[in-house]
Nucleic acid binder design. Structure first.
Lengths: 255, 255
DNA sequence: ATCACTTTTACGCAGCGTAACCGTTA
DNA sequence: ATAACGGTTACGCTGCGTAAAAGTGA
């Protein structure tokens, strides 16, 4: 049956097997106009040729690298290789997806480690980690506060931030805020307040990397706090009093 | 409006903002029975409480780590933490997805590098890479040829196989087969044939890792070639003559 | 007459986006 | 009375899986 004829025609089932797909898939591609059988029998049966097989293989590869069928169709229409360009774009798309996945994995990792140590009811701790995630998605709405230059820099730094770090930093902020709240009655110029201010400065620089462009954006952002999205407000643990106290402490040092 | 009351009720829009989701999402979760608003207004408006917010946040986190909504619902029903267990499973699920992604990325990489060097019409080369992918998916149907032990070993070795390696090995096989076909008329005992046999042995061992269990499975597989799936046959570049010639060459050496 | 294969039609799944149409009014 | 939200269908999208009903015959 497997003759080396040039123009052999295959029926759906056989053809599907050849390419390692299902008959249903062939139907689907037919309706999408992605791969139409080059012939039909009198009874209406789909008949595929070797040329069709070549095309189907191309489709399969492109699908494997994650391209949507519509795009594959368009790509195969424009004979000339837009291929190279599409492949490059696809690489970045895949990279983004991978980052998403890795963030999710590290989130789980952090949660599991936290849960194995603590005796918290699992949930509280796990939910706490939400915050880290929320801060991570901040890149959207915070955009308007940063200059183009600062945005690029923030983006670059973001890649260095593993969820573990985020979690640690988040915890340090929590602790610091608690300590500050306990010291709100103290003299902003006191040694204790100055120590707190130093920790504060430290954490801020952990984010800005000491870059003044980023710092400017951050200032603008906090000045506009009333207009933050509700979610961000809820997750921001820093109350106005705390912020004010830190400002006083900082200026007290400058005297 | 933002009073610090204990039992504040939120309407859909506001509540959605609080949690960073859309109103439509709330509707969706309601219909799924995933998150039902704890109250309704006279007019039928959904009214959410702070307790609902806690639950919604849990949902959001679990969704972030890739759990399907149905599973989240079940998980939240069984109060007691099946959480730990689910998280562990999810880790492996995510790892698999990541592997998929990376395979796709490396496939693209290989294709792009190949295309930048060669002057082939892009497509041919790219399609060629299909083969590597096909071989990669071989784990399914080849299963029946291997013993349980061998399967485990093959699985372990598979993780070490990057698409780059696959591509290289695939190319070496191609070259070897071409060389053998050109030498089919020679004496299997000749030095040339023996050199070819050595290259053959080398490549086979590259796959088996020298493990006799794997080798046995491989033998069984090739003995049953007539029953391979059509796709595998098409992608297997080794014609019977070639195989036979190699067998002769190998036994000639043993004399 | 049977078996194996083919066809078309159409609902299902995941997770919402996006109208469309209509009632409420924090 | 209008603007601005809220409600409830319900179709769209991705990529097929999975019957269902009915015709073919490589």
């Amino acid at each position: 049956v497997v003759k080396a004829a040039q123009t052999r025609l295959y029926r759906a089932h056989e053809f599907a097997e050849l390419a390692g797909v299902t008959v249903r898939t062939l139907h689907h591609y037919d309706r999408l106009g992605l791969l139409k059988p080059s012939h039909r029998s009198e009874a209406g049966y789909r008949l595929y040729s070797d040329r069709d097989l070549v095309r189907l293989e191309q489709i399969v590869v492109l699908k494997f690298v994650g391209l949507p069928l519509k795009e594959i169709r368009d790509l195969l229409k424009r004979e000339k290789s837009a291929l190279t360009e599409v492949l490059r774009r696809q690489t970045t798309v895949l990279a983004e997806k991978r980052k998403q996945l890795e963030d999710a994995m590290r989130t789980i990792e952090a949660a599991r480690r936290a849960m194995s140590v603590s005796e918290e009811p699992d949930w509280k701790l796990f939910t706490q980690i939400t915050r880290g995630i929320a801060m991570q998605n901040q890149t959207d709405w915070t955009g308007k506060y940063y200059s183009e230059e600062a945005k690029a820099k923030v983006g670059a730094r973001k890649d260095l931030w593993s969820p573990e770090m985020q979690e640690r930093v988040s915890r340090e902020w929590d602790e610091l805020v608690r300590d500050i709240e306990a010291a709100l009655g103290d003299d902003p110029a006191s040694a204790k307040a100055q120590a707190l201010a130093a920790r504060w400065k430290n954490l801020v620089e952990g984010f800005t990397g000491g870059d003044p462009e980023i710092q400017k954006g951050l200032n603008k952002m906090y000045a506009d706090m009333p207009n933050w999205p509700a979610e961000a407000k809820r997750h921001n643990p820093i109350k106005p009093e705390v912020q004010e106290f830190m400002m006083k402490a900082t200026s007290a040092k400058d005297r």
